[in-house]
Write a protein that binds this DNA or RNA. Structure first.
Lengths: 153, 153
DNA sequence: AAAAAATACTTGTAAAAAACAATTAAAAGG
DNA sequence: CCTTTTAATTGTTTTTTACAAGTATTTTTT
């Protein structure tokens, strides 16, 4: 009884939190990168940046994007000079993705923006609170990882 | 130096976390509600459910949705019998939104789904860890609230 | 080694979502 | 009153998304 209310509550909070960060991300894409990338594209850029020469499948799967949609997004990003696509020497079916210097710049802009925002967010907290939050983010990350529900990996 | 890496790291974790919950929500919309609502629509339904007779503007603003996009979404939801729109007696420009019984059912389905998932997520944690996470979600919620950056309110 | 199946990716096409401009209607402020 | 603001809708275009089908390459099977 009490428990139901509790879960409803915490679920609602997480929903709002996630929605807010999502909006933040969308705004960031508009604001910090000169309107050149959409939220979906920013995810792609960050994900390519995080890995080393991932294939299209790798990135598309980890973002749960339809491969055809993904293919077209990459086409756009390539045309804008942010991403390169090069055939895998060992398997000609596969295209390996990488960021161009411009793409890396965009990546840095996005990361800086996020960092500034987190700084602002954490600045209103005590050291203890900050640590609590950081630990929780890690905990949740791991729990999500292990739950295996989502294709993100 | 060390700090930069730290922020980059935690920023990345939050990004992935948020993305994952977003995907989870999208999947939920497909799975738990018989494909009848999109993620955007699920947000609208939950937000209407949370408030008492909000206006279109209220909900659209809090979700950072363009009012014209929102207007059409409401039209769809109304056509599907999930939401009602009734003119404000005090101001004829305003339409007040509410969930129909069917809409409320969908809302409950979504909430149940989220609760089940959270249960699963938390079941792998110790009592202490769970408390940490819950406290952090609250902390982050409040910090976001106070940062005033996002239009969500 | 040849045929069949699977994998990686692209293109055609259609539907849905999103956004800008313009419009209607009502309220608020001089 | 008349002007301005606010709430919402409709017209229109662009963007996003996704299914179906197709090509090319690799792997599996017999």
């Amino acid at each position: 009884m009490e428990d139901t209310v509790f879960w409803e509550d915490i679920g609602e909070m997480i929903r709002v939190l996630v929605k807010r960060f999502g909006i933040l991300n969308a705004n960031c894409c508009d604001t910090c990168c000169g309107e050149e990338v959409s939220p979906a594209q920013s995810h792609i850029i960050l994900e390519i940046g995080k890995r080393s020469c991932p294939s299209m499948q790798d990135v598309a799967k980890c973002l749960c994007m339809d491969i055809t949609t993904f293919s077209r997004q990459i086409k756009t990003l390539e045309a804008r000079g942010l991403v390169t696509k090069s055939p895998d020497p060992g398997d000609k079916r596969i295209n390996l993705l990488a960021l161009t210097p411009e793409g890396t710049q965009v990546r840095n802009k996005i990361n800086n923006h996020m960092r500034e925002y987190l700084n602002l967010l954490f600045s209103g907290m005590t050291e203890f609170e900050r640590d609590t939050v950081v630990r929780s983010v890690k905990l949740l990350s791991e729990a999500l990882e292990n739950s295996g529900i989502c294709c993100f990996r």
